[in-house]
Design a protein around this nucleic acid. Structure first.
Length: 219
DNA sequence: ATGACGATTTACT
DNA sequence: GTAAATCGTCATA
């Protein structure tokens, strides 16, 4: 049976800012072990620029077991565990050995919302009320939970793997629909905290925050 | 071996 | 608006 086209390797062979911009409107697809297909359109991303970027896990070319996947070829996944309970999913870009990545921060769910909701209702904590569609994948850890993305998907090749990949969706998002803001949760990064490296589809209800973050304290 | 911290989310005032 | 949850990771020693 025919398989849908995917974004090819060359799509990811780009600097992090360009890729973060180009990923808006593209489709992220997750196939579960039972063959359930989950998918959503990317509506929020953040670029992490590697060596010079104080907010990046690869700042000063730091290389540890955790972030090893950042040094892999473009189109590799980088999934990391944080705050003792959450996973976040990135797409590695640039060239091999150049630790650039784009964090996927929110999706507009398009397929498998029922299964997503089921995934969200399990760990780490049950939720009291039904989850609105706009809250299903509106945050980097939420979307990982909804799509059942965990450590087992770290370092995989998104251009060939059958479990997690990207498909081209509606054409490029128009420039006037793209809004840039500072990145979320990187106040520790000094000057880099203020750089407008977060990309969102303006006004989309599935993004993680409604308002532009204000700059928190330095240190 | 130890301790400080985190590319977050949720509940609660 | 503030704080708790929760533990792998990494720098330091």
């Amino acid at each position: 049976m025919p398989t849908n086209p995917r974004l090819p390797r060359r799509f990811f062979r780009a600097d992090a800012e360009s890729l973060a911009r180009k990923l808006l409107g593209q489709r992220l697809v997750r196939i579960l072990p039972d063959r359930t297909r989950l998918a959503g359109l990317i509506v929020e991303t953040e670029a992490y620029l590697g060596e010079p970027d104080a907010a990046s896990h690869a700042y000063r070319r730091r290389r540890t077991p955790r972030n090893e996947a950042m040094y892999a070829p473009p189109g590799t996944s980088y999934v990391y565990f944080t705050y003792g309970m959450h996973f976040c999913f990135n797409i590695v870009c640039g060239k091999t050995n150049e630790p650039l990545a784009v964090l996927i921060r929110a999706l507009e769910p398009t397929e498998g919302q029922q299964a997503m909701r089921r995934n969200r209702l399990s760990a780490p904590r049950p939720m009291p009320k039904p989850i609105a569609d706009t809250a299903l994948c509106s945050g980097p850890a939420r979307l990982c939970q909804a799509l059942a993305i965990d450590r087992s998907l770290n370092g995989i090749d998104l251009t060939t793997d059958g479990r997690l990949f990207l498909e081209p969706a509606s054409g490029p998002v128009a420039d006037d629909l793209v809004q840039r803001t500072p990145r979320i949760g990187v106040a520790y990064a000094g000057d880099w905290a203020a750089r407008p490296l977060r990309f969102v589809i303006r006004g989309n209800p599935h993004i993680s925050r409604k308002t532009v973050p204000k700059l928190a304290k330095f240190r």
